[in-house]
Design a protein around this nucleic acid. Structure first.
Length: 485
DNA sequence: ATGTTC
């Protein structure tokens, strides 16, 4: 295990690095991990999380979750909340893929009915949802329509025949974050994004057909609240983000922030921590543009849901409504937004950065869809395409401890290059098929990079959050079909 | 993650 001077164990799965660890730390850092996961974390995570703890206006702690790994400036699996007046906003704390996120859709189908149709379903979805680097979508919108999408995300989609009325309320923030400002988006970003609606992208993005996995976890009493009533029920999970649009916005503003830091006299330990005061012109402009990317990502996943409904309708010869293809929920992984949290006994509006981390709001929060409000917000944890995923719910403890946040997935343990060296894509595809996972991928190298062995054990990550009490298990899901970017 | 090294 990496030796970190002064790090102390706070509880079974919580570790704290004090401000004495390095000069300039404003708050301590906290890491959520079992001993096993902590031992596997690279030194970069500890350096990065303590760098984040040194940023102006950071409150309480800089967090690294159980799935944390080295990222651009901030660790992936990181959470940091900032004071609105004295704090900063940082693209490195959000990620290039703004509002990369997960969406879970239920069906009323059971495994036996879907099994013989998996290939047909996956092949059709592979045609309907363009996957891979640089792919274009099938949605044609004008610049002014694209600006409406930047402002209203899922709401625009639902009003324009790409969704159902109740889709909007089943997405984090009601399907769009307020404060989008399309005038702060470069024409270069717009021209990349306008053709990318309804596309999956590449890397670890996927569209997956899944089935409940009672051998790992199934709590029927909790699950029924989400319309999951059978131990072999089929669901669909989508993992993707804002594509080249968010990436371009991130790149644009990193350049702006380079200069802004000099003007505002901000010194950071690492150039990748580029940031600007949230109240500054540069900080506000980036926020307005970044929210446009977040809303485009919500809309992107929404158009994909529309395609999923089309595909199921075609393959099962029933209307999407009759197949109960409702969105259970949609969560952001990479975003900063204004949220109210209790701090030192009073409620305060804060700027919460989550990068490779999931919101995990506890029971009763007004932002949770009414049918689940008293349970907690659905938390969707995506594993690798071989090992499966989880549905969890947020807790009151997460509200108290982590600004209502938890982990987001399994996290890589092996570099993409190492995975490609070790694994042959076509062999992996055959092996997965023999294990009952029919996978279609844009490229075989891309498939090899996403092999299950390149990722941490998802169950260990989920167990950490469960022991910590920052989210609670509802159901485990295993893949039966996968479309890979 | 990314018109995968503007």
């Amino acid at each position: 295990m990496v030796e970190i001077t002064g790090m102390k164990q706070v509880s079974e799965v919580v570790w704290e690095i004090p401000t004495s660890y390095k000069q300039g730390m404003v708050v301590p850092a906290r890491i959520y991990a079992t001993k096993k996961l902590l031992g596997g974390m690279d030194r970069g995570v500890f350096e990065q999380v303590t760098n984040v703890a040194s940023l102006p206006g950071i409150l309480k702690y800089a967090y690294a979750m159980a799935d944390a790994h080295w990222g651009y400036g901030f660790p992936i699996g990181g959470v940091a909340a900032f004071d609105m007046e004295k704090g900063v906003i940082s693209p490195g704390g959000i990620g290039f893929d703004v509002n990369c996120g997960m969406r879970l859709i239920r069906t009323n189908l059971r495994f036996a009915e879907v099994k013989p149709k998996v290939k047909e379903l996956v092949d059709l979805l592979f045609r309907l949802v363009p996957a891979g680097v640089g792919v274009k979508g099938f949605v044609n919108v004008s610049q002014s329509q694209f600006e409406e999408i930047m402002r209203f995300g899922v709401k625009w989609c639902a009003e324009n025949d790409y969704g159902w009325d109740d889709d909007v309320s089943h997405v984090e923030e009601g399907g769009f974050i307020k404060g989008a400002d399309p005038s702060k988006v470069s024409t270069q970003a717009s021209s990349r994004g306008i053709r990318q609606l309804g596309t999956l992208g590449s890397g670890n993005h996927y569209l997956e057909i899944q089935v409940v996995d009672p051998s790992r976890h199934f709590d029927p009493e909790l699950a029924k609240n989400f319309g999951i009533v059978h131990p072999d029920q089929v669901l669909v999970m989508i993992h993707c983000g804002s594509r080249g649009f968010g990436h371009q916005i991130g790149s644009d503003y990193l350049r702006v922030f380079d200069g802004a830091m000099k003007r505002y006299g901000i010194n950071v330990r690492d150039r990748e921590l580029a940031c600007a005061p949230f109240t500054s012109k540069e900080g506000g402009d980036y926020y307005g543009a970044m929210v446009c990317a977040a809303n485009m990502a919500f809309a992107n996943r929404q158009v994909i849901v529309h395609r999923v409904r089309e595909a199921f309708k075609k393959v099962f010869h029933r209307e999407a409504e009759a197949l109960d293809l409702h969105i259970i929920y949609d969560v952001c992984h990479n975003v900063a937004k204004s949220e109210k949290h209790r701090l030192n006994g009073s409620e305060k509006e804060l700027l919460v950065h989550r990068k490779g981390a999931t919101r995990s709001f506890g029971p009763g929060h007004h932002d949770i869809p009414a049918p689940y409000r008293q349970l907690g917000q659905p938390v969707i944890i995506g594993g690798s395409m071989e090992t499966g995923s989880y549905l969890l719910i947020g807790t009151a403890k997460a509200m108290e401890e982590t600004f209502g946040s938890t982990a987001h997935g399994s996290g890589r343990t092996m570099s993409r290059t190492a995975a490609k060296k070790q694994i042959r894509g076509n062999e992996l595809q055959r092996s997965m098929e023999s294990r009952g996972i029919y996978v279609k991928a844009a490229t075989m190298d891309g498939l090899a990079e996403e092999a299950g062995v390149a990722y941490k054990d998802i169950s260990e990550v989920v167990e950490t959050m469960s022991i910590a009490g920052i989210s609670k298990k509802v159901v485990a899901l295993r893949p039966i079909g996968n479309i890979k970017g």
